[in-house]
């Protein structure tokens, strides 16, 4: 597990905040408000986008063409966010998203990146031995499925459109969204079975 911050880091944050407040640059209140807003973002948004794409061909087209516009169509503010690319899994191709350089992640639609996404092991191994990483997580893909790994960057973020599980014909969007986990949106898993 990630180690807690060191005492000297906690003290540095207090000193930096005090110095910035003394200069009138930021206030504790605006930091707290921004934090509360950030806490609200969650993978449920990405899951709703996928569920809509499974049921609405026009939205699916928009999602695959311009993910940022597709997020905005769901009422998500993408102001200042880099473009969002969405990659469609098929019976012969599976996508896996990583940020080898740090932690780039479509936070507006998925929330904070989890610690494992930011870990040195995931960042280094996902591009070298993706099938081994996926197998460790319980996803064993047959050789007939190509694995395509994409590197998210500060300037372009990626999300996966998983395949719709069998046996979900006639399901409404809310029920479909319940099958779409964050892991499926990153590509370390597939959507849950019906």
């Amino acid at each position: 597990m990630a180690a807690p911050p060191r005492p000297d880091s906690l003290a540095l944050l207090d000193r930096l905040m005090a110095a910035l407040e003394a200069k009138g640059i930021v206030t504790e209140a605006e930091i707290a408000e921004r934090q509360a807003n950030t806490d609200k973002a969650s993978p449920e948004t990405g899951a709703r986008m996928v569920a809509k794409a499974w049921t609405d061909p026009a939205y699916r087209q928009l999602l695959l063409t311009d993910g940022k516009a597709a997020a905005e169509a769901m009422g998500v503010s993408m102001a200042g966010a880099p473009p969002l690319g969405v990659l469609e899994n098929t019976p012969t191709r599976h996508h896996l998203v990583v940020c080898t350089l740090c932690s780039c992640y479509p936070r507006a639609v998925l929330g904070y990146p989890p610690n494992w996404y930011k870990s040195f092991a995931y960042r280094s191994r996902a591009v070298r031995e993706p099938r081994a990483v996926l197998a460790e997580w319980g996803l064993n893909l047959p050789d007939s499925v190509e694995v395509r790994v994409v590197d998210s960057t500060a300037d372009y973020r990626w999300m996966v459109l998983p395949m719709r599980p069998a046996g979900t014909e006639g399901w409404d969007e809310a029920r479909l969204a319940s099958l779409v986990t964050r892991d499926a949106l990153v590509g370390v898993a597939v959507a849950k079975p019906a």
Binding site: M1, Q35, T38, N115, W116, A121, R125
Partner: peptide, 23 residues
Amino acid sequence: FHCTPVEHDEVPPDGFGRKVDAL
């Protein structure tokens, strides 16, 4: 890092991290 398993660390960011992020 080839022999390092990817630890399933799902602990959300702590108060320190979220404050740095907001700053």
